[in-house]
Design a binder for these strands. Sequence first.
DNA 1: GGCTGCGCATAAAACGTTTTCCGCACCGCT
DNA 2: AGCGGTGCGGAAAACGTTTTATGCGCAGCC
Lengths: 347, 347
Amino acid sequence: MWNSEGVDAISVRPARIQDVAAAAGVSVSTVSNVLNRPERVNARTAERVRDAVAALDYVPHPGAAGLRTGHSSSIGLVLPDVANSFYSRIARGAADAAYEHGYSLVLCDSGDAPEREQGYFTMLVEQRAVGAVVVPLSADPTRLSRLRERGIPLVLADRAMPAQEGCSVSVDDIAGGRIAVQHLLDRGARDVLVVNGERTIRQCADRYQGARQAVRTRREARLGQVVAEEMTVAYGSEIAHSLDELPDGVFCTNDFLAAGLCRALGERGVKIPEDVQVVGYGDLDIASFVGTTLTTVRQPVEELGRAAVEMLLDEVEARAEHAHEARVFAPGLVLRDSTRASSDAPF
Amino acid sequence: MWNSEGVDAISVRPARIQDVAAAAGVSVSTVSNVLNRPERVNARTAERVRDAVAALDYVPHPGAAGLRTGHSSSIGLVLPDVANSFYSRIARGAADAAYEHGYSLVLCDSGDAPEREQGYFTMLVEQRAVGAVVVPLSADPTRLSRLRERGIPLVLADRAMPAQEGCSVSVDDIAGGRIAVQHLLDRGARDVLVVNGERTIRQCADRYQGARQAVRTRREARLGQVVAEEMTVAYGSEIAHSLDELPDGVFCTNDFLAAGLCRALGERGVKIPEDVQVVGYGDLDIASFVGTTLTTVRQPVEELGRAAVEMLLDEVEARAEHAHEARVFAPGLVLRDSTRASSDAPF
DNA sequence: GGCTGCGCATAAAACGTTTTCCGCACCGCT
DNA sequence: AGCGGTGCGGAAAACGTTTTATGCGCAGCC
């Protein structure tokens, strides 16, 4: 009645493989063969079939196919919070890779709730997901058992795992700490302070270890450390105010800390980078938005997501000859004003 | 051989409904009934069945079920880029809602590529997705036809749509512009400048319209506008430098612009908020990280994602009595230093 | 005592694929 | 003529569910 013509489509039943077979004057098996193993069928017949497919706008039903073949074509991506930019960048890389390989990505945002993470694991088991990329809430390996015991392959992201247990991808935080401090030393700093987060956090401990390694290469260099309760702008600022004697180089293990520290130093009349050089970590948005833009350590996070999916698919598709691998990515340094002597206006 | 005992699980075939039936000494239909319409079956039998389910750790195969019932339980989320915080917040809200209702969310990141967006539409059609939430690349409605003609219900996000075409969710940008400027006027500003983006962008046009509405309520107030080529920190800064005479209130239609503008004004020796009050838009991370934190307009973005999914599910589950709706959300004001007279240290 | 109706459980037919045979026609060879 | 290939195409059996149509026993009612 008042419907325009497009709307009648909502009642049309999608074409099945049978319909295609009928239209092309062949059997269903032939249609299936044309679609999945074209080499098995005569070129002329194949052509006829493909015409029919196009004419009917046939799209195969992967659910039905999966029923027969035993596996779906979706992979799970489990992470604590997509709204967090670190995780959303992982998601981006994973989505790209999944798309390129023709898999669909199921977004499982555990919202920092362990029971919800478990719920998603169950859901993935139900769906017979072909595998999962997991950025786990905690390092506790038993939480992964639900997937393990169902034989769903998984790749851990941002968390290393003994290689025989499965694949994992992560960034080399020790190297990150090393290049950050190395850079400060290269630019003449001799008295380096590390503004760190809680050392129980693996990343923080690693970055500090890297810093120590860098300092060891120079006789005359000294390293200090101060630990912030939380890695926020506010604490970075507070630490800058509480400093008695100034170092000539500061390595903040997080860009928030660095941003707060830079601002507070500025308020104290300290010039950056002339008096103190500062390196941050993470290349978060804030690093380039802040007054004096931050030299910082950039992590190839999208690569992490992409690699995780690709390793997962290798495991899925190769099965037998797949060897587990713990891939670690190298971070890189992004040079900006906070360690650059001549600061040409970046805009 | 060298495998620990957990590993044999990878070969165990998941229990089917048949196995449960056998274990409970009933027929498959009874098991199915226990699971889907418990009221149809005797309480004692149901109990036996449930025990068997638990004992075998049976999980139903939604693919197979979907084959029979004709629809899957997954919904698509199509957006231009999850790494962009606006979209990732939508994703977060959508994921929460989907989880609560027992649906799984398929992440479709079109990466700003129209053909990839189409590819995802095709994929969703294949999977017989029950519906989709779409943040479209452009307003061109024909791109959605692929889903439409297959009768897949969809909800548009961040983009209004004639209500009879389907549901949509969006934020009221006119109201956003209005409250921003209203706030400036309330705090005594009389000469208000709007730093806007390209007016071909609907959001920009709307926010400016809201600004005009607010100014109209005060006889003595005046409104000016300057348009930035891009809505970035750099352009905000540039505009601040190019200003001849200063207004006493500035409304930037984006926090990046506001951040750049504030910094540049500071460099010119202008005090914020004493000399000029500034309001941003979006409540992006940058708004609270920047030197003088930004008063800004906050959009309930997670709510957008959540509502979109819920409206979609209403359409899916109610079918007949569902009425399309174009829901628009009200933005709110977040008060921070850039319009606050007495600036107590926020830390 | 034969009906009807009710409460419960089951058998069997779908759903749309893939894949394993198997058959058929044709070819070239002894 | 008989034989083994080979190249193509088809029939039919799975895959794991849901759902429709029955079946069966038993109570209540004329």
